[in-house]
């Protein structure tokens, strides 16, 4: 047969449609601009913006695993917050062991201590993710109602186990020497740790995008999100892929837990459950299953929370709910609805 019989059809959406497609990306700078107008003072605005980005990126780290897990197997883990808490407690325990490193003036030793804490925490939460998936999630695949209930039960048990292992009190750890204090940029003070958090968040987002776009595993995950059955029909075991993603997501939640803990310097067994509220809002805003949407949603929520915390502290959480409502009225499936076959 010849080329003539099958005319190549280049289906490019009209310009206007493509603009709307890209619109969510514009939302972040737009919100930042609005923030500048509302806050007025550029120095304060810069401080708030960096804080907002840091918070947003930490939430992104914690939320990304949840959203991919949902996309791949239609599983929503209400116990995801447990990994955040456990990660924080394990990380803090390591930091206490390495007290000599964290209190030393050496930047290298400080960062090594944080690195070790993150590593051990991620390892612990990945293993916990393995156990959680096998024991709690696997028996209830495909049954949403039971899934919600059982993973909630897992959260309760995990929180109680934190009490058993670490006692009922909250835990305090000061940030390592070199991560305390702020840089002064003109009139604005920017906390050092927030910049580190932004750095880690950006690196992680870039890495995640690379993995999803350019590795075979990433391709499989994206294919699986769209049509898991077809991935199986091509000869891949989606269940095993899912377990890996679940563990990775849990490890990321653990990482987020350490970072959030260092940000607050105080952690409780309930912290994960509290952060999950923001995580859910972010995941809903972004579109369940979409990593890009999750990223933009997280930045929006981070920025908005910090601006409103400055302008009207009492309505910070309510403002994020408002954001969610507005976004859902505009796009009922979130910013980037995930296309599902079937």
């Amino acid at each position: 047969m010849s080329e003539a019989t099958i005319k190549p059809r280049i289906e490019k959406a009209p310009l206007g449609e493509r603009m709307i497609e890209k619109l969510p990306v514009v939302l972040v700078p737009a919100l930042a601009m609005l923030g500048l107008i509302a806050v007025g003072n550029p120095a304060t605005w810069l401080t708030l913006t960096v804080a907002g980005l840091a918070m947003g990126l930490m939430i992104f780290i914690m939320a990304s695993g949840l959203t991919v897990v949902f996309g791949l197997m239609d599983v929503i883990n209400f116990g995801h917050g447990a990994f955040i808490s456990v990660g924080a407690f394990v990380g803090f325990t390591v930091l206490i062991w390495l007290g000599g490193w964290t209190s030393s003036p050496s930047v290298f030793l400080n960062l090594s201590a944080v690195f070790m804490a993150i590593l051990v925490a991620m390892l612990a939460t990945a293993l916990m993710g393995y156990a959680f998936e096998r024991v709690i999630v696997m028996p209830v695949y495909g049954e949403h109602l039971k899934q919600i209930l059982v993973t909630m039960g897992g959260l309760i048990v995990a929180q109680q186990l934190i009490y058993v292992f670490w006692g009922p009190d909250e835990m305090h750890v000061a940030r390592p020497e070199s991560l305390q204090g702020s840089f002064v940029l003109g009139e604005a003070a920017v906390e050092k740790y927030r910049l580190v958090a932004v750095g880690i968040g950006v690196v992680l987002f870039v890495a995640m995008r690379y993995v999803l776009k350019s590795t075979r595993i990433g391709l499989l995950v994206r294919a699986g999100v769209e049509n898991g059955e077809m991935v199986e029909a091509l000869g891949y075991r989606v269940r095993r892929l899912f377990l890996m993603v679940f563990m990775a997501g849990s490890a990321l939640a653990g990482l987020g837990g350490v970072m959030w803990g260092l940000y607050q310097e105080t952690i409780t067994a309930h912290m994960g459950q509290e952060i999950m509220v923001l995580v859910f809002i972010v995941v809903i805003i972004g579109g369940l299953g979409s990593v890009e949407g999750c990223f933009i949603g997280a930045l929006l929520v981070g920025l908005l929370s910090n601006y409103t915390a400055f302008l009207a502290p009492k309505v910070a959480l309510v403002s994020t709910i408002g954001l969610m409502v507005i976004i859902l009225m505009w796009r009922p499936q979130g910013l980037y609805p995930v296309v599902k076959a079937k």
Partner: peptide, 23 residues
């Protein structure tokens, strides 16, 4: 299981084609 059946040498073109449109 489906992956094992596939690897034993059977390919499948489903009714909905099963194209990964995101890829």
């Amino acid at each position: 299981e489906t992956p094992a059946i596939s690897r034993s040498g059977i390919a499948f073109v489903p009714e909905n084609m099963g194209i990964f449109t995101d890829l």
